[in-house]
Design a protein around this nucleic acid. Structure first.
Length: 873
DNA sequence: CAATGAACGTA
DNA sequence: CGTACGTTCATTGC
């Protein structure tokens, strides 16, 4: 393992707040702290046999000789950083780690040299660096660990395959790309107009930078011109970004073998730096006994924080048995697990070895119904599962509690929630940064202590029935969602791949058609370029304005097709369609795991109304409207050991909720008579018998009914139906004349929301609307429409959540092997086991229909089939 | 590189 | 000038 000391220390410096890491003498230590914390993780996870850390000596190197402006744009090194480097090196030496530097070279060159030598000597080499130039080192023996953009303390592993996946090129080609594109941070300008895409395209086309430059005349357009004018830049960049692989170093690989950790020396250096928890962790690495709470006290601790006890076995079991609603925090640290359990008064820290005898009582307690509090319990269930353990007794979840209080934004971290509810700063780094801060890795006990207190404070702020939503819906839903995520849904990969291939061909053909229609090639995905084609080259009438020009969306293009027909428009629309589907299919294909299934993540705090959201991938927006789109659903199948898929969806749940909430007798009657809703409403509005309602009348009524729940205006209705606004207005007047209760209800929702500044669902879920009082009309009216919709959408969310909890429980109690897989807002999907259809259908129908007592029945439609599409009818 | 906007898929 | 989402791509700004 070879580490780029400067680049990582610098990242650590910016990742951790300077002020929180200072010794009593005023020495800053945040970079050192972050670096060591990360190093400990690396040592634990990767267990290298040999290790070196390379540093730059100065800015001066052979590169600045050729090009004095090299890295010239970088500002002064912050003084708070400078003094930390020698101390870091001292700490590394105490830990038995060699540091290297070389006059006239950069740390990168040392990395390149050692990596090359290591690989030649038969090592598998890990290069740890935040400098992209090191990508060129990757090969089948050398892997790069690069700090990821947002990953919490995560390093991304770049092997040759990953580089190919990310950049579409082989690692050794990366510097050629970089030479063309340039590198701002090194003050190396590239060829203007050439970005990553173009560079990769050329490399693929010509094979190498040399070849591109040799055949530069073959490249047309402005980019080609630019390349010819600036070819010298690319050549220079390539000279400068080539890492030197044979720097003379006065070490042999054998000298880098990891030595003993000299705990006495470490203790001395760390005492000077006032690192307490890090000392613990280094002690663990070294196998030394270091007393918890020894060494110097950290300066910024909250005074009353209890000292964490280290307990095992019966002692631990006793402690847990007596703890009253403690918080639990499980942290996955590489291959190990750290657990903190805390009440406001006391805490324990557990170096959990799953399955070990000393931890049996803990694992038993964790799985039991004994009440426990978490932050993001669903994530913690996943962590426990990876340790082979289960979590029961979820009695609180700080993340959910905080979201219920303010559903527009959920706190993303414990630190944010603690600050909000306790006003205390958790000493921890920015979770978006590279460095795993000490509090999140070694101080599970402290985190648990923060969680338990912040949770109590959050729950105290619950008003009215929020506690019911929390206790009866959101908390019991957590294990259900965790189960859904773990189960995943089976995918017919060959089918999707065939579909992808077909779509790819079609996209290509349509693109060509579009190009032929205008006599040139443009990026059909670029609205900007499309505007050029449509409004300048083809001189079509201007469409609706956007912030940056004129819209090219599907509706506008369809309108243009009428006003100013052109073959380009049809090809473009068809291309968009096919390209979008292809993109979706490819995303799904990539999401299929080893087990042949896609495991989405349900974000319980995803929507302000109470709905779930689905990500990575989103399985709640799989196409259904077009025939071609539905073919994607054919790729969602059941596992071979199951008999069929079941889908069960609420029919018109939002309209039913509207009927219930408004108490409108006409609407209630419509549902109670069980006939076609839109036909019934149409008959009333148009004053004809139901059987004389034409399809056109029905679709107008349908659009209006749904639109009303969203705050649709006469203007919007006229736009959508393509009728005059007078006609739209009349339609609405007629509607409200027959269904006055709906109008009164919609009015009352907004009125009440203005008085209360919040809305409420049938079950008492609240959503605040501060903007209802805004003097800004746009903001206020947006808030009014959202407020109108919120009790309706939110109540529907409550209902299906209640149904999910009940169904999951009943299926378990009945001992069925069938299982729930997905929720798509008003629909549930199940995998049905052999011979269980009838039993499952009964449970599903009963629990879905019975999830709420409304003044109209809740109707459930159930379908089955070998795939999602077939199961839909 | 991160943020934003446009476009479009779902309920 | 209809609510609630997530993803992708291109573009822009730092």
């Amino acid at each position: 393992m070879i580490i780029d000391g400067h680049s990582l220390a610098f990242r650590a410096f910016y990742a951790l707040p300077v002020d929180s890491f200072q010794t009593q003498t005023g020495q800053h230590t945040n970079a050192i702290h972050g670096f060591i914390a990360m190093l400990i993780n690396l040592l634990g996870n990767e267990r290298p046999d040999a290790l070196a850390v390379a540093f730059d000596i100065s800015r001066h190197s052979f590169r600045t000789e050729e090009y004095p402006e090299y890295k010239g744009t970088r500002g002064e090194t912050p003084p708070e950083f400078k003094g930390q480097v020698p101390l870091l090196q001292e700490a590394l030496h105490a830990m038995g780690i060699r540091t290297l530097e070389k006059e006239n070279y950069e740390a990168d060159d040392i990395l390149a040299t050692l990596a090359t030598r290591g690989a030649e000597a038969g090592y598998r080499v890990l290069v740890v660096s935040g400098d992209r130039d090191t990508i060129q080192l990757v090969d089948d023996r050398i892997t790069l660990l690069y700090p990821s953009k947002q990953g919490v303390s995560e390093l991304t592993r770049y092997d040759a395959e990953k580089v190919m996946e990310r950049y579409g090129i082989r690692p050794e080609q990366y510097p050629e790309i970089a030479a063309l594109v340039g590198e701002t941070s090194d003050n190396l300008p590239g060829i203007p107009r050439v970005g990553e895409k173009t560079a990769v395209k050329w490399i693929k086309q010509f094979g190498s930078l040399e070849e591109i430059l040799r055949r530069q005349d073959e490249i047309g357009g402005k980019v080609g011109e630019s390349l010819r004018e600036n070819a010298h830049l690319a050549e220079r960049n390539r000279r400068l970004n080539r890492l030197v692989r044979d720097v003379e170093l006065d070490v042999e690989l054998d000298d880098l073998k990891r030595g003993e950790i000299d705990m006495a020396a470490v203790q001395q250096v760390f005492a000077k730096l006032e690192f307490r928890t890090l000392l613990q962790r280094v002690g663990k690495l070294a196998g030394a006994e270091v007393p918890v709470g020894g060494a110097a006290p950290a300066a910024e601790l909250v005074p009353e924080k209890p000292e964490a006890k280290l307990l095992l076995d019966e002692e631990l079991g006793d402690w847990l048995a007596k703890a009253d609603r403690p918080a639990v925090r499980i942290i996955e640290a590489g291959d190990g697990f750290e657990v903190g359990v805390a009440t406001p008064e006391a805490s324990v820290l557990i170096h959990w070895q799953p399955g070990g005898r000393d931890y049996a009582l803990f694992e038993q307690w964790l799985a039991s119904d004994a009440p426990k509090v978490f932050f993001d319990a669903k994530q913690q269930i996943g962590a426990a599962r990876r340790a082979g353990a289960a979590i029961g007794g979820i009695a609180g979840d700080l993340l959910l509690a905080s979201w219920l209080l303010r559903p527009s934004t959920a706190e993303k971290s414990i630190a944010e929630a603690v600050f909000r509810f306790l006003g205390e700063q958790v000493p921890e780094g920015d979770p978006n940064q590279l460095v795993p801060d000490e509090s999140s890795v070694s101080d599970a006990a402290a985190l648990a202590w923060y969680v338990v207190r912040a949770h109590a404070s959050a729950v105290e702020r619950f008003q009215s029935r929020t506690i019911e939503i929390y206790r009866d819906i959101e908390l019991p839903l957590v294990p259900v969602l965790a189960a859904l995520e773990e189960r995943g849904v089976q995918i017919d990969l060959p089918l999707l791949e065939a579909h992808d291939a077909e779509l790819t061909t079609r996209v290509g053909e349509l693109q060509q058609q579009a190009f032929d229609a205008i006599g040139r090639e443009v990026n059909l995905s670029s609205p900007k370029q499309l505007q050029e084609v449509l409004f300048e080259q083809l001189d079509m009438p201007k469409t609706r304005k956007t912030k940056s020009g004129y819209t090219t969306d599907a509706a506008a293009l369809a309108e243009l097709q009428v006003k100013s027909p052109h073959p380009f428009l049809g090809a473009l629309l068809a291309h968009r369609d096919a390209n979008k589907l292809r993109q979706m299919v490819e995303t799904l294909i990539k999401a299929v795991r080893e087990d042949g299934r896609i495991h989405t993540t349900f974000v319980q705090t995803g929507a302000s109304t109470g709905r779930l959201a689905s990500t990575d991938p989103n399985l709640q927006n799989i196409p259904v409207r077009s025939e071609e789109g539905r073919r994607i659903r054919e790729g969602f199948i059941h596992a071979p050991e199951f008999e069929t898929l079941m889908t069960a969806d609420y029919s018109q749940i939002e309209m039913r909720i509207m009927a219930h909430l408004s108490g409108d007798e006409g609407l209630i009657q419509a549902f109670n008579e069980g006939e076609d809703l839109h036909r019934f409403v149409g008959a009333r509005i148009f004053g004809v018998p139901p059987e004389e309602v034409t399809n056109e009348m029905r679709s107008k009524v349908k659009a209006m009914s749904y639109g009303l729940a969203y705050g649709l205006s006469a203007f919007g209705l006229s736009k959508q139906l393509g009728i005059s606004s007078a006609e739209a207005k009349q339609l609405m007047v007629d509607y409200f004349e027959r269904f006055g209760g709906v109008r009164d209800y919609l009015r009352s929702v907004v009125d009440q929301a203005k008085r209360d500044t919040f809305t409420e669902t049938i079950f008492g879920r609240r959503r605040p609307f501060p903007d209802l009082a805004s003097p800004n009309r746009i903001l206020r009216e947006n808030a009014e429409r959202a407020a109108l919709n919120s009790p309706i959408q939110g109540s529907a969310a409550d209902i299906i959540k209640r149904a999910m909890i009940a169904v999951e429980r009943r299926v378990r109690e009945a001992g069925l092997a069938s299982r729930m897989l997905l929720q798509i807002h008003d629909e549930l999907m199940f995998e049905v086991a052999e011979g269980e259809w009838d039993a499952l259908e009964a449970i599903v129908r009963e629990e879905m229909a019975g999830a709420a007592e409304l003044s109209v029945p809740l109707e459930v439609q159930v379908g089955h089939g070998a795939n999602w599409n077939a199961a839909a009818h």
